[in-house]
Computed example of a mutant assay.
Amino acid sequence: MGGGRSLLYIILRNAALFLTAFLITSTVITWAQWSTTHYQLQDTYLSMLKFIQTTPTLQERANQSGMTYEEYAWYLTYRSLNIRPDFVGTMKTYFRQVWDIMEHGLGKWGSAWAYVRNTFSIFLLAEAGILLLGLYLGLRAGYNGGKTERLVSALAPFLSAIPSWFIGAILFLILWDLGYTPDFQMRLQDASTHGGVNAGTYLLAYLGPALAVFLAMVFEYAFIVKNLIAQERVSDYVLADRAKGLPDKRIRKKVLKTALPQFLTYTTYNLLEVLTAVFVVEIIFNVRGMGYLLLASFRVVYKPPHGIDIYLYPQLLIFVSLVMLALYFVVSTVMEVIYVRMDPRVSRGE
């Protein structure tokens, strides 16, 4: 490679990081479920066995499945606790179930990829708006200053201090008051009742949550871009170009080209922040997306007088983590390839 970074090297390195992050995440999720339930194995088994021995219906099911009462009791124990006899076996089971989720869906919940589609549709709409308007405002504020700079500098810290879910809740109420149905499921149901659901129906249903994420993130992005451009604007090469009398348009293009690798780096890291905001906001708008799966995968139930019970569904947690990490792997790889192509110092390994 001659000290440079080839495309194959970037892909292999990022793939190794992706697999490492996925294994660590899956291990932590499995450990959380295992540590909170494995001590109940024996007691749950004895309870299940006693229940089977006194319940003719369960005895018939055991016979139909070709299991002894003891084997069927263990089957029900593993199913109720959502673990297996040992930690490694539990983790392998979760991996197989995640594969089943990708291949066969979520049973009564429908296709897993429909949830992914909903989330990523909102994400792409919001991210497109953030990039377009955020870059425009940031470039204008950073290079020209003036009213645009004051606007970005004032709104960025204000909106950054407000949680995205709060902006989503306020927008939901405003849209509802204006006569627009912001609830995703209600909008789809209304459309199916009055003529059918099509691509336009989904697009209109996605606009509400996408707008909420856009409002929560766009000025923060513009503020970062403004600072990057402002730093480049006062650098030595810009001052030298101005002293030479070069046209302002040419200097601006040079500033943009020099700062663009930093934009790419920040944009890559910002993607997961935007995606996380989508998870939260889509719950406000009742979107069946990955945020809904995360909400369904973890519950804390108060049971007086003994305290609380924690219910985890590790398969869903691991599935959502896999999708998030896959997105970050693809985007970071593409961004790094572009970065290397744009910055000759990196491609030469300097």
Rank of each mutant, 00 (worst) to 15 (best):
K249T: 09
D177M: 09
T93M: 12
L173G: 01
S297L: 04
E282H: 08
A62M: 03
V255C: 00
T77Q: 09
M91L: 15
S160W: 04
L203E: 10
P157A: 05
S47A: 13
L139Y: 10
F166I: 14
L188G: 03
R140P: 04
A296K: 13
V238F: 07
Y206P: 05
A243W: 00
G195P: 09
A169C: 05
Y237I: 02
E103V: 11
A21I: 14
S121D: 02
R117C: 00
Q42A: 10
G146I: 02
E220V: 07
R233S: 14
D183M: 11
L41E: 11
E103A: 14
T265I: 14
A15Y: 10
G110V: 09
L12G: 02
K147I: 11
I10F: 05
F184S: 08
Y237F: 15
V116N: 07
T201L: 10
Y69K: 11
S65E: 15
R187Q: 07
L246F: 12
T90N: 01
L293Q: 06
Y266W: 13
P182Y: 05
G134E: 01
E350F: 05
R117Y: 11
A15C: 09
Y115T: 01
L215E: 04
A277P: 02
F18Q: 00
F263P: 02
T30Y: 04
R252L: 13
A156Q: 08
P247G: 02
Y94P: 12
L49E: 12
L271H: 02
L260A: 12
I101L: 14
P157C: 07
M335K: 04
V234L: 01
L159V: 15
N286C: 07
S347N: 13
Y45K: 07
Y292D: 12
F214S: 10
L124F: 15
T181P: 04
K254Q: 08
R252Y: 08
L294C: 05
M91G: 11
S35W: 06
P344S: 12
M335N: 15
N286D: 11
K147T: 13
V330E: 00
L7F: 15
L256N: 00
L131P: 00
M1F: 11
T181H: 01
R187V: 00
T36L: 11
G196I: 08
L58T: 05
V320I: 10
F279H: 01
S47I: 13
I130M: 01
G110N: 05
F263Q: 03
L178H: 02
H104D: 06
L260G: 00
L295I: 02
I170L: 15
Y206N: 15
P247T: 02
G200C: 07
I283C: 01
G146L: 01
L17P: 00
Y69P: 01
F120E: 00
T258R: 15
S321Q: 07
Y202T: 04
L294N: 04
M91P: 04
H104K: 15
R345G: 02
G146N: 13
L155Y: 03
V197M: 04
M335Q: 09
T265V: 15
A21Q: 11
L49T: 10
I284Y: 11
S332C: 08
E127K: 07
L327C: 12
V320D: 04
I170H: 04
G66R: 09
T258Q: 13
P261H: 06
F51A: 14
L264F: 07
E70K: 06
L322H: 03
K249S: 10
D241H: 06
A15K: 00
V152R: 04
L173F: 09
G208P: 14
